[in-house]
Computed example of a mutant assay.
Amino acid sequence: MGHTARVGAFVWISAGSLAAWLWLLLCQGFFWRTDVRLPPRRDPETWPSVCVVVPARDEADVLPSSLPSLLAQDYPGRAEVFLVDDGSADGTGELARELARRGGLPLTVGSPGEPPAGWTGKLWAVRHGIALARAREPEYLLLTDADIAHTPDSLRTLVAAARTGGFDAVSLMARLRVACGWERLVVPAFVYFFAQLYPFRRVGRRGSRTAAAAGGCVLLRTEAAERARVPDAIRHAVIDDVALARAVKKGGGHIWLGLAERVDSVRPYPRLADLWRMVSRSAYAQLRHNPLLLAGTVAGLALVYLVPPVALTAGLAAGSTATAVLGGAAWLIMAGTYVPMLRYYGLSPWLAPLLPFTAFLYLLMTADSAVQHYRGRGAAWKGRTYARPDTVGEES
Rank of each mutant, 00 (worst) to 15 (best):
T4N: 10
R6N: 08
A9C: 04
A15C: 07
A20N: 06
W21Q: 03
L24P: 04
L26S: 04
Q28F: 09
G29N: 10
F31L: 08
T34M: 12
V36I: 14
P39F: 04
V50C: 00
C51N: 04
V52D: 00
V54M: 07
P55Q: 08
P55D: 08
R57E: 02
D61M: 12
D61L: 14
L63R: 12
P68E: 10
S69G: 10
R78P: 07
D85C: 02
G87R: 11
A89I: 12
G93W: 02
G93Y: 05
R102Q: 03
L107G: 08
V109F: 09
P112F: 06
G113D: 10
P115Y: 06
A125S: 12
H128L: 01
I130M: 15
A131T: 10
L132C: 15
Y140P: 05
L142K: 06
L142S: 04
T144L: 14
T144R: 14
D145A: 09
A146R: 05
H150W: 15
S154W: 08
L155N: 00
R156Y: 05
L158E: 07
L158R: 01
V159C: 05
G165P: 04
G165H: 02
L172K: 13
M173I: 08
R177K: 15
V178P: 14
V178L: 05
F193T: 01
A195C: 13
L197C: 11
L197R: 15
Y198K: 10
S208C: 11
A212L: 02
A214N: 14
G215C: 11
V218D: 06
L219W: 09
T222G: 05
A225N: 02
E226K: 03
A228P: 03
A233D: 11
A233F: 06
I234M: 07
R235I: 12
D241W: 00
A243K: 04
L244I: 12
I255P: 04
A260R: 08
R262T: 04
R262M: 06
L272Y: 15
L275I: 14
N290F: 06
N290G: 05
V304C: 14
Y305R: 12
L312D: 01
T313G: 10
A318M: 12
T323F: 02
G328R: 04
W331Y: 05
W331D: 03
L332G: 04
L332M: 07
V339H: 08
Y345A: 05
L351Y: 12
A352L: 01
T366E: 09
S369F: 03
A370F: 02
H373G: 13
R375A: 14
G378V: 14
W381D: 12
G383L: 05
R384F: 09
Y386K: 12
G393I: 07
